[in-house]
């Protein structure tokens, strides 16, 4: 049986983490290819529903990353996002959804090495947790 390769979806903000991930590449830092990066204008734009959709579409883990506090391109988008994640994470946990599969981070445009580290550690953590069977097994009869 081939080794399980986790599928990680990363929702990142355009101004910090996306640029940071770009720096990882231009710095020739090698990191796990298991991550699929989706670029957003701001962490404040990342609707909590997108996380559920990612799991529903087969993600085993999720990374949410944006500018450090006080560094938001739109001044306060990440502060709003932080509040949203505090509440959403608590709700997911209460519903028994595996919050260990969701990694939040602040990665600036200068932190190429940190991005590689965030991805690598998340991939390894999710590899240990295994495929997210709970969400895969959920009934969706009649879904289009």
């Amino acid at each position: 049986m081939p080794e399980f390769e986790p599928r990680i979806v990363a929702f990142v903000c355009n101004w910090c983490t996306y640029a940071g991930a770009d720096l990882t590449g231009t710095s020739r830092i090698k990191y796990s290819p298991n991550v699929e990066v989706i670029r957003f204008p701001c962490t404040g734009r990342i609707d909590f529903m997108l996380l559920l959709k990612a799991f529903a579409e087969g993600a085993d883990g999720i990374i949410i990353s944006g500018c450090h506090p006080n560094d938001c391109h739109y001044t306060s988008g990440n502060f709003h996002a932080r509040r949203r994640w505090i509440l959403f994470r608590g709700l997911l946990d209460f519903m028994g959804i595996d919050v260990e599969r969701v990694q939040f981070s602040w990665v600036s445009a200068a932190e190429g090495a940190k991005w590689a580290d965030v991805v690598n550690t998340t991939v390894e953590a999710v590899r240990k947790l295994g495929p997210y069977e709970n969400f895969r097994k959920i009934d969706r009869a009649g879904a289009v």
């Binding site: 529903m49 559920l52 529903a56 959403f88 709700l91 519903m95 959920i138 879904a143 289009v144």
Partner: peptide, 25 residues
Amino acid sequence: QWIPVPSHELGNLEWNVMRAMHLAG
């Protein structure tokens, strides 16, 4: 279509999470 129309478990879960979150605070 954020919330699927049929009432299967996945859509029901998404709806109930969304309802709770839209009322948070």
